[in-house]
Design a protein around this nucleic acid. Structure first.
Lengths: 169, 169
DNA sequence: TGTACGATTGCGAAAATTTGCAATTGATAA
DNA sequence: TTATCAATTGCAAATTTTCGCAATCGTACA
């Protein structure tokens, strides 16, 4: 379940960071929230553009980047594409299979335990609330063993051409 | 220490996967090997281009992508830039500080333990040999506490304009 | 409220990355 | 060695992403 929006906590956070909460930013956050997990740039931009055609891609790029940088949202590299989602208190992590692209969720506690250990040992505080670990899922291992054969790898999943609508003509 | 090159094992791996070992690919691998850890696209392309000016950026992009896909090299998203390096037997992982960009290496064993647990619990085999965990390092925590303030975040590290030399003036 | 300042936006241009395709060239088997 | 065939390359074009800058527009404060 995505974080609800409007989200007073999020707004407070934005202002505390010294950011202005512009209509553009508000909309972008709403869209990301509405998309739930793993929204691509295109999905986000499409929604934003539909709701407010004057908002430029550059603004969306910039804000996604800014929000990520300040951990209001999380950006994740998945299978050749980048996906975004609202940051949450609870972490959640995925195992994604190289072969079949299946996803398995990992209980946060497990990963958190590693971070706690790292902290104890090095004093370093890991901040990521969302990690993606690539590998091979149980089913595919059964089929082909642990090594990735030549033809077991897939093309990038993301749709190729976005072909945004030009404004003029 | 980067993996030595030429590397018979790597060549065998390439051929086993059904890839042709073209001069372009050979050079790219040599360059990546020569760069050691964390080579950016630009660094790689520059070296390649210097050694063989006729090789196009597209070829380098394609092969970096292909090699990553088949785990001959590892591509990693670091601080807004992507970096590549030759894959190795031994994993190695980094903690990178959001504030000062300091790097701390994590003993592979520690992370591996997590993966082993995941395997035991889910049957999923994690394949990544190189993970990057972002967070706050001990020194910066001491200075500012655990929360990331507005001005504690840095611009992207990667050099902005690449401005490749055009061939035809 | 009204004013002032600096953050943010949209635009167009620049730069980076990907793609289509014809030509080339490894690798295999005769 | 030579012929064959599909993988790979280089180019140019298409597409995506970033950047510079003047104009706006939130916010803070009087």
């Amino acid at each position: 379940m995505p974080i609800p929006y409007p989200n007073p906590k999020l707004e407070r956070r934005i202002r505390n960071l010294g950011f202005r909460l512009t209509p553009q930013r508000d909309l972008i956050l709403r869209v990301v929230a509405g998309r739930g997990e793993h929204a691509t740039f295109d999905e986000i931009y499409d929604d934003v553009h539909q709701a407010a055609p004057h908002i430029s891609p550059a603004t969306v790029y910039r804000n996604l980047e800014t929000f990520s940088r300040y951990r209001l949202i999380h950006g994740n590299e998945v299978a050749g594409g980048k996906v975004y989602e609202l940051a949450r208190e609870e972490g959640h992590h995925h195992l994604i299979c190289h072969k079949c692209w299946g996803e398995i969720k990992v209980p946060d506690a497990q990963v958190r335990k590693l971070f706690k250990q790292l902290d104890k040992q090095t004093g370093f505080l890991v901040l990521g609330e969302h990690f993606v670990f690539m590998g091979i899922c149980p089913d595919c291992r059964r089929e082909e063993g642990d090594s990735l054969g030549r033809f077991s790898v897939y093309p990038k999943f993301s749709v190729k051409s976005k072909k945004r609508n030009k404004k003029h003509e």
